[in-house]
Amino acid sequence: MRKIKRLTLEPDQKGILVNNRGGEHALYLSYVCEDLRQFGDYSLVTKRLAKYPESIEDLLNLLLNEVYTVVDSKPLLDAFFKLLIISNVGILEADIVNMLQQYMNKTGGENDKTPIDRMVWSTLRRQLKTFLDTTWIYGHQLIIYRHASLEQILQKRCFKDNTDELRSMHSFMADFYLRSQTIKDFSVRRVPYHYEKANMYSELIKYLRSSQSRGVDRLDRQAYLRRRRCTKLLPFTDDIFNQRAFLCNICAMQFKLGPFTMAKSSCLICTNMILGGNMSQGNPFKREARLCQKHGSGGYPHSIQCVVCRQPRPKPSGTGTAAGFPESVALNICFDCWISGGGSRPRCCGMEFE
């Protein structure tokens, strides 16, 4: 059997590394060892060791600059770095080729397309091996950066506080996970994150209330929706500044606030089923859903506005209050949303889209 020769550093080479102040940190040494492992020319290791700077930031910038000099396509490298940064949790390797292909060609014509295939990705990944690692989430393996320090450096290099580009890329990621995903149960969990980061709040709320979002964790769904709740505090009186929320009869028959619950028995904010939601007003698990003037009707209490179709409803007969609409459905919120919103003081249950 052929023996594999294992190369180690000579005493003088170890001395160079020991005398480097960066060698005091395990993270610095891990990057150096990985770089040396891929360096290839043992005869030049001494010169290589002497070239390493003394801080982790300078070392990473040195290694990144070297990568940019050897890759065939700098735009492709930039695209990969940016996509991995905004992914937040990493990218499925099963998605990466298709994702890069779509991102690199999202603006070009048929004759200007950049071909991205498995061979291109394999070459790029081999060149970036020093910077990448893998992890497992939801039972799936993802590509991630080796350390947050690298991600922070790349964030500065790639985006430079360009918020418009960040939002555009998050919008691309949300669309990709909606249309081109390979593993659905992973993708549906990523869509809300990218909608929120892209400031696409209308699309976020619509998605979380649709059947497409069934795979989103219940607590995540609550958090996303509660963050979009209007912050306006309301008076204790029932008037134009504190209106009861209603669904018109048409929307009440056709609409679900969430993928699992019917409108009459679910929370207007988080969409969770309210235990005993169809019971009397004395139910301790629900509270009335109230709206501020901005999210309600300008003619309240003589007229109301459906929270879904936004259409005004005619003046009720009888009592002259919104509760007198026989065709309208009064909405509620769950006890948890009531508590998270302050509890003691009424707060608007409308959704902010800006």
Rank of each mutant, 00 (worst) to 15 (best):
A50D: 14
I56N: 11
R37G: 14
V45W: 03
K51D: 15
S55K: 10
N65E: 12
L49T: 06
Y42I: 13
L62G: 00
N65S: 12
V71S: 03
Y68R: 08
Q38I: 11
D35V: 03
T46V: 10
V45Q: 04
Y52R: 06
N65I: 01
K51N: 15
S73Y: 00
D78C: 10
L76N: 00
C33M: 13
A79M: 04
L44D: 14
L76P: 00
K74P: 00
T69F: 05
A50I: 13
Y52I: 08
L44T: 13
L64M: 10
C33Y: 12
L64G: 02
F39T: 06
F39H: 13
K51Y: 13
L62D: 04
R48I: 10
S55M: 08
V71F: 04
L77G: 02
S55C: 10
V71A: 03
D58F: 11
L77K: 02
L49F: 09
L64Q: 05
T46W: 09
D35L: 03
L76H: 00
A79N: 03
Y68D: 06
R48F: 10
L36E: 03
S55F: 07
V32P: 01
S43I: 10
Y42R: 11
L63W: 02
L59K: 05
P53T: 07
T69P: 00
R37F: 11
L59D: 04
Y52M: 09
L64A: 04
Y42V: 14
E57M: 09
E54C: 11
L59V: 09
Y31F: 15
L77I: 07
S73E: 03
K47H: 15
D78L: 05
E66Y: 02
A50R: 15
Y31V: 01
R37S: 13
L44Y: 05
L36Q: 03
V45C: 06
V45N: 04
L77A: 06
T46N: 14
Q38V: 11
K74D: 07
D78G: 01
V45Y: 05
D72N: 11
E66L: 05
L60D: 00
T69A: 11
S55V: 07
